[in-house]
Design a protein around this nucleic acid. Structure first.
Length: 551
RNA sequence: GGCUCUGUGGUCAAGCGGUUAAGACGGAGCCCUCUCAAGGCUCAAUCCCGGGUUCGAUUCCCGGCAGGGUCACCA
């Protein structure tokens, strides 16, 4: 059979460059030793989730801690998956979390010499190599219809054989020249398949950067490399693109492990040196009795928007992910709490081998710890940004009062104290923490533990004594004097010694005041709260509490 | 089912032939304390099972078991 003629018939020369040309057009990158070239290669569905962020972070760190390049390639070989504006959305989402690309699709960079970065725009490159493989007898046309393939599969399933297009089941592999041209003349649609030379009984050891030594069984499937629309499948595009974009380290989910044999054969057939591979474990979630991979349909917490809406500090999400990526990151942060996380020595080899359960509690802890290291001004900006986008009318109005909010933040963040408070774990919750500082969102629950008469007496007496000029010490002595006057222990020590001698302690008196002023039995330092609120508002609240229920 | 990956407390996990088996989150308790946080201290809780190899296995080997992934003209 004249393979050159066949190649021309199958892949007409639409101005294709000879394959060797591409080695010159896309020369190896000049980089220092050890620098990694990594990429994020999403399909343009626009939906970028936590798993993608996790993987992107590994890519970004691997590249940037070695002085390499991190680029964005769009795998748009499947027309059905395309969503408008998806690429911009991917870039924007990652940027929000501080992850930026050096080159690639829609990235404005002088480095963009390995493009185009959209696979559909690379059709000619792929076709040139498919043609080469046909000429070499390593690829052939397949005219099987969907029904025929289904029939083969059914037969294989029934005989309990491995399903797929291989060996004796690869019917089109043995098509005669005459049949091929006849089919072509009849304009039957066709795909191009790899003529696999592998043997599933042969296994090879293979080194994965994360998994370590693994076993790879040879591929014997005549996989489709060029679809009937003339666009390559993922497998083929992967081999071509990662070779010519000079990727050094392919980081991808472990669901790809099972197609690694195909990729190895493809690289070999094309005469390319394969990149290093790092197969990451997937983020898991408990579902009933067992763990399962996080699913974007079932788990809202997989969506990155979920974290933006809930108001997690973006760097907190990244730091949490870093602890999953390299578990010694956490100890490093404990040792250097103020350090920029970028200075941590990330290494792909330190990544865990088993799927991690996503832990919201841990995220919250990372988040509140991080926020506690920030200044009230920074947190004001962060919270303001959140209220602008997700807050309600009142929140937005409150955040116009910058100075007032900063005073509150100083209090609830414990600025100036020996140890910071860690009350704010995310914007949505942090903003609610401040509601009682504003009359229009102050919603007291007057759940006093003492009878009305006692409560009113405490409130009334304290109001008479209250002087906003008092410092903490003076303020508290007044609380104590009210306590003593009404038969409560002014000193906790006395109360602990003889609880039966008193109606309660100064703590109970403070609680009554606290409920009246903040609407809740728990709050940070009440004296400071009162000074932030101002005399007028405090007095009004003390009186309102006495009026409760009497309207 | 074939192929393949994984298996240390509830969770994330250190460990790499000899350890009282780190640390963090979460839980319990105590201290501090006007409440709540924060902080300090303490406690409970782990090597999937069975065989080997070895003076000695969490660690090495084999076999189970369990869980995950994958078997498309989707990526």
């Amino acid at each position: 059979m004249d393979l050159n003629k066949l190649a021309d018939a199958l892949i007409p020369d639409e101005g294709l460059l000879p394959p060797e040309e591409y080695e010159i057009i896309f020369p190896p990158r000049e980089m220092k030793k050890g620098a990694e070239v990594t990429r994020l290669a999403p399909s343009p569905t626009g939906f970028i989730h936590l798993g993608n962020l996790y993987s992107a972070l590994a890519d970004e760190r691997a590249a940037h801690t070695t002085g390499g390049v991190f680029y964005l390639r769009i795998e748009d070989t499947d027309e059905k998956r395309k969503v408008e504006g998806a690429v911009e959305s991917v870039i924007r989402s990652l940027k929000y979390f501080g992850i930026n690309f050096d080159e690639g699709a829609e990235i404005d960079s002088p480095l963009n010499v390995y493009g185009p970065y959209y696979q559909r725009q690379r059709a000619k490159i792929y076709r040139s190599f498919v043609k080469k493989l046909i000429k070499e007898g390593r690829a052939y046309p397949c005219f099987c219809t969907e029904e025929e393939l289904e029939k083969i599969r059914a037969e294989q399933t029934e005989k309990k054989l491995v399903t797929g297009y291989y060996g004796a089941y690869a019917k089109c592999r043995g098509l005669s020249e005459e049949q091929i041209y006849k089919n072509l003349a009849e304009k039957k649609p066709y795909v191009i398949r790899l003529k696999s030379m592998g043997d599933v009984n042969v296994k090879h050891p293979f080194h994965d950067a994360i998994k370590g030594e693994i076993t790879v069984t040879e591929n014997d499937q005549d996989v489709v490399i060029l679809k009937s629309d003339g666009i390559p499948t993922y497998h083929f595009a992967h081999a071509i693109d990662d070779h010519f974009m000079r990727t050094t380290l392919v980081i991808r989910g472990e669901e790809w492990l099972s197609s690694l044999p195909i990729h190895i054969e493809l690289f070999s057939v094309l005469g390319f040196k394969p990149p290093r591979y790092a197969h990451t474990c997937s983020l898991m979630k408990v579902d009933g009795e067992t763990k399962r991979k996080l699913s974007k349909r079932k788990d809202p917490e997989l969506s990155l928007d979920y974290y933006r809406k809930a108001g997690y500090y973006p760097e907190a999400v990244i730091r949490y992910l870093m602890t999953l990526l390299n578990s010694d990151f956490e100890e490093w942060t404990l040792k250097f709490p103020q350090a920029d996380w970028h200075d941590f020595k990330f290494r792909i080899e330190k990544m865990g081998k088993s799927g991690a359960l996503f832990d919201l509690d841990k995220l919250s802890d990372v988040s509140k710890t991080l926020i506690s290291t920030k200044s009230p001004e920074d947190i004001y900006d962060f919270l303001k940004g959140w209220t602008d986008e997700f807050g309600n009318e009142k929140d937005r109005a409150h955040f116009e009062e910058r100075e007032y909010i900063i005073k509150i933040l100083n209090l609830i963040m414990g600025t100036g104290g020996k140890k910071r408070r860690k009350d704010i774990e995310r914007a949505e919750q942090g903003v609610r923490l401040m509601d009682y500082f504003f009359d229009d969102s102050f919603a007291p629950r007057y759940e006093f533990r003492f009878d009305r008469e006692t409560v009113d007496a405490v409130l009334e007496r304290f109001e008479r004594l209250y002087d906003p000029a008092d410092d903490n010490g003076a303020w508290f002595s007044k609380v104590k004097s009210v306590a003593a006057e009404l038969g409560f222990a002014a000193e906790m020590a006395d109360f602990k010694l003889r609880p039966e001698a008193y109606r309660g302690s100064v703590a109970d008196v403070a609680e009554i005041l606290r409920i009246a002023v903040t609407g809740s039995a728990n709050s940070p330092d009440l004296c400071t709260i009162m000074s932030i609120l101002g005399k007028e508002r405090c007095v009004a609240r003390l009186r309102a509490a006495r009026m409760r229920g009497k309207e």
